[in-house]
Design a protein around this nucleic acid. Structure first.
Length: 562
RNA sequence: UACCCGGUGGUGUAAUGGCAACACUUCUGAUUUUGGUUCAGACAUUCAAGGUUCGAGUCCUUGCCGGGUAACCA
């Protein structure tokens, strides 16, 4: 008998699978996604969300949403709401398990008192500068704080007074008493609490001492009965501290597992940089379609399925890689190809007059809505004497490989007739303003009864029926493949692509698009995938965002020739 | 300089001591009323050197290269 298809698991899922089959945590699997509400979610977070929620799903477990809100200076309710919307949009559900680290401030405080009683934590009066100095360096052991040996009673008293607000910001900290000689800097008596007289977005003025990440995170995991605490590589050196706190407390001890975060080419996912792009108005906001944020992708027309599919495809490892944006684009095209209705839209119009087509007369042509999906049916598109076609679909001195329109040559108008260009009308500047053409009435539907063939098929829109629209074309946000590699002496923002947004006005769309609603997605045949902008589009002034262009073999041929 | 973690085609991953596999990109060709889609084909001596083994991408040693780490950020 043949063995079952062996499913290949990434190393995190392998650990979880082993733990489950070994009966660890009674076979229970419980993960969490722990964003800090200090910015919007981006594509890197999507990888983590898909991992955490995906593992819960795969192993019959649960995944919590927990906001890591231990630093009131940077965190805001706006972000809390946006983050939830983005996760739901991505397609994941935390059900009733919405938590906040700030929910655990009281428990954390009680645990801190316990560590003090154990002699494992002390109140330190050193300034931030002194702490840094005493910590030592990689080749230099740390020195113990002069406050390290305070008695339990004194520590208890001082810590309670810290909480009561008797001290100013930065005047005292609570520190874990571990090892000032550790090779791991995180173990050189790390801070557990700092004093900040700042209102918290949820607890208001209830607290003026706030726990640090290391102190709050593992303990929050423990409280929520998490089994596998999955985080990114930069926390690898924190794991001994994560473990230390939990061991001292004798509390439920989740396993921290670190994986490499996503780095995508031609964009940045540093929250600091994204925030700077927004605040500095280099982009239109967190949901600017050029942003790698989930809200940016959503506004651009990307589907959540594409993003999930992408996250699935890139895998999970501990290797710091640079993922090619082409992989994400491939995912986007793949899904959009399946689901989007086809329409005709001319981005850069030039007028065609069909001299032998009667003036003032129109007819309806049948067009297929989606060749990938027969159930999408057909629609009718008006055709008449005056049309718009794409300026780039005509060339005066056409090279041999140019299959489109040129004087004296025939092309097919998609779903309509063969069209032949007779002459070109130009203005004083030599700019083409009109193409005088004739059509062959025998070729209705695009086939010639005499069997003659045309090499090219181009799209068109009836001038009398066209819907005018604004179209926004997007390119990479950065000119450099890895914008994190900033050349010496250069500001990273100089790497921003000046052509990342191109606004086209006076675009001509087929009349069915008058019905399009914000968020609706289409394939403009031969151009790309577009969606109605959710912020700026109105019935009178429709605005479309290009999600991604269609693959374009012709532009490659052209590039090779020049 | 210390500690931790990595290294498989151009890119991302798989191979759990037994024929280096898949996807993307690129290139060729076929099909096509979208220069889209689809289909077929091409593209690697697994960072290096030693060792263990009948057999090593995988295990061991050393070296090389890359990343992370010295916030009262997360």
């Amino acid at each position: 008998m043949n063995g079952p298809e062996t499913e290949s698991l990434d190393f995190v899922r392998q650990i979880v699978a082993d733990d489950q089959s070994n009966g660890k945590n009674e076979g229970r699997v419980h993960t969490r996604f722990p964003p800090e509400p200090n910015g919007y979610l981006h594509i890197g977070h999507a990888k983590s969300i898909c991992l955490n929620f995906g593992i819960a799903e795969r192993f019959g477990g649960l995944c919590n949403l927990r906001f890591d809100d231990t630093n009131p200076e940077k965190e805001e309710t706006e972000y809390v709401e946006a983050i939830q919307e983005d996760i739901r949009w991505l397609g994941f559900d935390w059900q009733d398990r919405l938590f906040f680290a700030s929910d655990y401030f009281e428990q954390l405080y009680l645990w801190a008192l316990e560590l003090i009683r154990q002699g494992k934590a002390y109140v330190c009066d050193q300034t931030a500068e002194e702490v840094r100095e005493y910590r030592g360096g990689w080749n230099q052991p740390g020195r113990e704080s002069p406050f390290r040996d305070r008695t339990v009673e004194e520590n208890l008293d001082l810590f309670q007074r810290m909480k009561a607000g008797e001290f100013a910001d930065g005047e005292k900290t609570l520190r874990a008493k571990i090892d000032m000689n550790s090779a791991n800097m995180n173990l050189r008596d790390p801070a557990m609490y700092r004093i900040r007289h700042v209102a918290h977005h949820r607890t208001g003025d209830a607290w003026c001492i706030y726990p640090t990440y290391d102190w709050a995170h593992g303990e929050s995991d423990s409280i929520e009965n998490i089994t596998h605490s999955i985080c990114t590589l930069e926390f690898e050196n924190h794991r001994p501290l994560y473990d230390w706190y939990l061991e001292m407390l004798g509390a439920h001890h989740p396993q921290q597992i670190e994986f490499a975060k996503l780095v995508l080419s031609y964009t940045v996912t540093s929250k600091r940089k994204l925030l700077e792009l927004v605040k500095g108005e280099y982009v239109d906001g967190w949901d600017d379609p050029r942003m790698p944020t989930l809200s940016g992708f959503r506004r651009r027309g990307v589907t959540p399925e594409s993003i999930r599919n992408f996250c699935n495809a890139i895998g999970v490892t501990k290797f710091n890689s640079l993922t090619d944006l082409a992989l994400l684009e491939r995912s986007i095209r793949e899904h959009l190809n399946q689901i989007t209705p086809r329409v005709m839209g001319v981005l850069d119009p030039v007028k065609v007059v069909i001299e032998n087509y009667p003036e003032g007369e129109f007819e309806m042509r049948d067009a297929i809505n989606n060749p990938e999906d027969e159930s999408a049916g057909t629609r009718q598109v008006p055709f008449g004497r005056e049309l718009y076609i794409e300026r780039s679909d005509f060339m005066e001195d056409a090279p041999r490989k140019f299959f489109r329109l040129t004087v004296g040559r025939e092309v097919r108008l998609r779903y309509a007739y063969f069209l032949k260009c007779e002459s070109v009308v130009k203005d004083e500047q030599g700019e083409i303003v009109e193409l005088r053409c004739t059509y062959d009435p025998e070729t209705a539907g695009g086939k010639a009864p005499d069997g003659r063939k045309v090499k090219g098929t181009i799209h068109w829109v009836s001038a009398a029926h066209a819907v005018d629209a604004e179209i926004r074309l997007y390119e990479h946000l950065f000119t450099q493949e890895n914008p994190a590699d900033v050349p010496e002496g250069m500001d990273w923002k100089e790497l921003l692509n000046p052509d990342s947004l191109k606004v086209l006005t006076g675009c001509k769309l087929e009349p069915s698009l008058a019905e399009a609603r914000p968020g609706d997605r289409f394939q403009f045949e031969r151009n790309g995938y577009f969606c109605v902008d959710s912020k700026d589009s109105t019935a009178d002034q429709p605005v479309f965002n290009r999600t991604v262009a269609l693959k374009d073999t012709w532009s490659k041929v052209q590039k090779k020739q020049s």
